[in-house]
C-alpha cells in the first residue's frame, strides 16, 4: 500500500514536473520544475529497489546539475529580456495546442511500440528483486570492482576530459591590445 502511494507520488511528480517545464514561460521556473521532476525520478528508482541509484540521482542531479543550470541561466541573462537584440523571441513558444497534442500522441505511440518489442525480453529475463535487507550498493560496488573495472577507470578518464574541456571553454579569451 505504501509502495503504491510512493509510486503514484513519484510518477505524478515526474510527469507533472516535466509538463510544467515545457509549459512554463519563465526559464527560472522551468528549472525549478525540472528539480521537482528529478526528485520524482529519484522516487521511482527507490520504488524498484535501486536505492543507490536514487541517492546518486539526488546527489548528482538535484544537487549538482540543477545548480549548474541555474548558474548558466543567470550568467547568460536568460531571464532578463524576452526579446534579443534582433527582435526575435529568446524563448519561442513551444507551439500551440495542436503541437502539444501531436507530440504527446507520438510519444505515446512510440512508447507502446517499444514496450511491445521489449516485452518478450523482459518476460524471459526476469528482473531479480532484492530481498528486503540486501543493498544494491554492495552489488554495484562488487561489479564495479571486478567485472566492470575497465568501465570504472575509463569513466575517470572521461571525467578528466570533461573537466579539462569545461575549463578550456569557460576560460575568458585574452584579448591582445596594441
Amino acid at each position: 500500500m505504501f509502495s503504491n502511494t510512493l509510486f503514484l507520488a513519484s510518477a505524478l511528480l515526474t510527469i507533472g514536473g516535466a509538463i510544467a517545464v515545457v509549459y512554463s514561460k519563465n526559464l527560472m521556473h522551468a528549472c525549478i520544475y525540472l528539480l521537482a521532476s528529478l526528485f520524482g525520478v529519484a522516487g521511482l528508482y527507490a520504488c524498484i529497489g535501486a536505492d543507490f541509484l536514487a541517492a546518486t540521482q539526488l546527489v548528482v542531479y538535484a544537487g549538482g546539475v540543477v545548480i549548474l543550470m541555474l548558474f548558466a541561466i543567470m550568467l547568460t541573462g536568460g531571464t532578463s529580456n524576452k526579446i534579443n537584440r534582433y527582435g526575435l523571441e529568446k524563448i519561442p513558444a513551444m507551439g500551440n495546442k495542436k503541437t502539444f497534442f501531436t507530440a504527446g500522441f507520438a510519444a505515446l505511440v512510440s512508447a507502446m511500440i517499444i514496450i511491445k518489442i521489449l516485452l518478450p525480453v523482459f518476460s524471459v529475463n526476469k528482473v531479480t528483486t532484492l530481498s528486503a535487507n540486501e543493498s544494491s550498493v554492495e552489488k554495484i560496488g562488487t561489479l564495479l570492482a571486478t567485472d566492470h573495472i575497465l568501465a570504472f577507470e575509463i569513466s575517470s578518464v572521461l571525467l578528466l576530459g570533461a573537466l579539462i574541456g569545461a575549463a578550456v571553454i569557460s576560460r575568458p579569451r585574452k584579448e591582445i591590445h596594441d
Binding site: L35, A55, A62, G63, L70
Partner: peptide, 9 residues
Amino acid sequence: VGMASLVGV
C-alpha cells in the same frame, strides 16, 4: 549528502 545540497539550491 544529497539532501544537504538541496539547501544550496
